[in-house]
Design a protein around this nucleic acid. Structure first.
Lengths: 226, 226
DNA sequence: GCCTACGAGATTGTCGCCAATATTGTGGTC
DNA sequence: GACCACAATATTGGCGACAATCTCGTAGGC
């Protein structure tokens, strides 16, 4: 298993999405070589299509290419993840504030529904469901903000850091820390309080960075002890 | 002049840079169609090279491609420019704060030198020189911050908005508004005052957004009167 | 006179081949 | 026994040609 990339997208966009998904899902691990001919067989596309897809994904920060030495899945270090989270802190705060400004009644109902489902998922210990709601919440806030420039950047950064994101989500005790932060963001946006939304988003991302730093420290001590 | 794109880069990177420069310099105007065969002749490269360059520049937000309908130079609207400036406000503030944290004596000397030259350029009415120093200052702050993720994003956004940037710079009276803002950023960073650097960068970008909005209003009234 | 269907030209999308470069394995020499 | 030069292989980079698609002009029909 872990490999059912046997569609026939043939064309550029399809191959790009397929490879992107495979990287995000973890079918291709960080550092793994991506040989054009192999991908070409795997997805049933021409080498040219694979080639342009690889170029596009390089621009998105998901793969790294070296002249005449091929492409590999980009390995996002913990330092990179922290940098990404710092940028996200700024931009998610911007989007949260904008969302608070522009939100309508339908949006409020939707966000509140997401909040309730998140609480339920955490109560039920449904880590995976909570993780998906987490992603949904962040995406909806980005969309509701109407700030497409920031949304595009955040999309890319999120794709780059899914692995760290997921590791954090499965960390024991993490959901009970992040849930109230998420609820605070929802509450602020639904109250149309831009300043509070900004602060809540900042606090949440600061907490993410803290958690990453702790993971870094834990890993270092394990490495030292092992 | 306005057209001496007759190098022979042949390879991908060279063509990409050449087209990018041509767009940034204004040799290709917003909305202009970019026909692959024409570019291929113009730069002496194969169509495949031009093609991959166009794809890369699409990802950078400098050109827009439509399926089977070709590529055009992206026309960045005033609304787009304001969005971009909003994102820049967040990220330049982050970089300024980080720069204030990490800066060493050499960096301080360099920034102060840039500040002095900016003052001199404004005194002398050297708009073009001031504009170049402006870009230099922002770039050095990005680099000194050590935040490569933010720096990469800012690089792209800046390339997208050069046209608006330039129009602002040539607006009469604008330098005397932006100079003290720039000097405040330099002073805060050199004093290693992260909070002040953050505020100064925010204030500067807020002023840019204001200027853009005024340009929007002025244009609307001209359009209404004409 | 206007609308629709068709066709010629232009432009992009895709593919397979060949050359250039890096990597790996082998043999020889000190 | 280890190091270096060289050749074989694997992989990427670049190019030209062909097919698919779109645009625009033209002719025919209502």
């Amino acid at each position: 298993m872990a490999a059912n990339h046997e569609r026939r997208p043939t064309s550029h966009g399809g191959v790009t999405d397929a490879i992107k998904e495979a990287i995000i899902r973890g079918d291709f691990v960080p550092g793994q070589r991506l040989v054009e001919a192999d991908l070409s067989d795997m997805f049933g596309a021409s080498r040219a299509a694979v080639r342009s897809s690889l170029l596009e994904l390089t621009n998105e920060g998901l793969v790294e290419k070296v002249q005449n030495r091929g492409a590999r899945v980009r390995a996002v270090s913990l330092d990179d993840a922290i940098e990404i989270s710092e940028v996200r802190m700024m931009l998610e705060a911007l989007c949260a504030a904008k969302a608070a400004e522009h939100i309508d009644d339908d949006g409020i109902a939707e966000l509140e529904s997401i909040g309730e489902r998140m609480s339920a998922a955490v109560s039920a210990g449904d880590v995976f469901g909570y993780s998906r709601l987490n992603e949904l919440l962040h995406r909806r806030v980005r969309e509701l903000s109407g700030q497409r420039t920031a949304a595009r950047v955040l999309d890319r950064l999120r794709a780059q850091s899914v692995r760290h994101q997921f590791r954090l989500a499965t960390q024991p005790g993490r959901p009970s820390v992040s849930l109230p932060e998420h609820l605070a963001i929802i509450e602020a946006i639904c109250a149309r309080d831009t300043a509070a939304a900004d602060r809540a988003a900042r606090r949440h991302l600061a907490s993410v960075i803290d958690a990453l730093r702790q993971a870094e420290a834990a890993e270092a001590s394990v490495a030292g002890a092992g």
